[in-house]
């Protein structure tokens, strides 16, 4: 994924710039951490990269395809097939079990039959060490378990880009370390591009690339 002069300004009097002139390259097999003070535009940049929000300036290409002209359905399809999101709060659907939550994107993609989708969702949970939690609804699981279910759901359709918005922000240090380890594995062992917005210095330290943001612009990349 490549961003050139990427910007996002909220309309109003005066207009509020969230992200300004971002030039950025997200590379496969690398763990990127976006860091900076609160309100510097980290999450806004993540939503732009995840095609949840539309930029007001610049270009954004994914696998060589300009994403700006894509309509809502095409952007949704790209998110479904190629992107995986993990948020600070687990953001699981309360009415559905862990297994059903993970199976949702697989079933929506529709490439597997019902039973095969369930089987794949189960293997994702097993990979997260949550096979025994498959039948539980989120309210009967711990915070760490929920976040791992959310990661399993993000990986359900084998995405090439994984986006995390403070994924460890609500976890204790033990669970936080476990999530960081998973993110590292996703990038280094599985060759996925991982972008993670964080305040946590340990997450930033574990990343391959650190993107420092301030007032909506990239201050430095190291």
């Amino acid at each position: 994924m490549e961003a050139r002069g990427l910007g996002r300004t909220l309309p109003g009097e005066p207009p509020v710039p969230l992200v300004r002139g971002v030039d950025l390259e997200i590379m496969p097999g690398r763990f990127h951490a976006v860091i900076g003070p609160s309100g510097c535009g980290k999450s806004s940049l993540l939503y732009l990269l995840g095609l949840l929000d539309r930029p007001t300036a610049g270009t954004l290409t994914f696998d060589g395809v300009d994403t700006l002209p894509l309509d809502g359905d095409a952007r949704a399809q790209l998110r479904l097939e190629r992107f995986g999101f993990v948020f600070q709060f687990h953001f699981l659907l309360a009415e559905f079990t862990a297994l059903e939550n993970v199976a949702l994107p697989i079933r929506r993609l529709g490439r597997l039959s019902g039973s095969a989708a369930t089987q794949q969702a189960m293997s994702m949970l097993e990979a997260m060490g949550l096979a025994d939690q498959a039948g539980k609804t989120p309210d009967r699981m711990s915070g760490g378990q929920r976040q791992r279910v959310a990661i399993a759901r993000a990986l359900a359709n084998d995405p090439s880009l994984v986006l995390g918005d403070e994924p460890t922000g609500n976890l204790d240090s033990q669970n936080s370390a476990r999530v960081v380890e998973i993110f590292q594995r996703l990038a280094r062992d599985q060759g996925r591009a991982v972008v993670c917005v964080t305040h946590d210095p340990e997450v930033a330290a574990a990343a391959d690339v650190r993107i420092h943001m301030l007032d909506g612009i990239i201050e430095k990349i190291d």
Binding site: A76, Q77, L78, R79, L80, F91, L93, R153
Partner: peptide, 16 residues
């Protein structure tokens, strides 16, 4: 509304 946002992030379309 929260579920709607989650589903949109997962890849469900507006029509879905």
């Amino acid at each position: 509304r929260r579920d709607i946002a989650i589903l949109r992030s997962v890849g469900f379309s507006e029509a879905d």
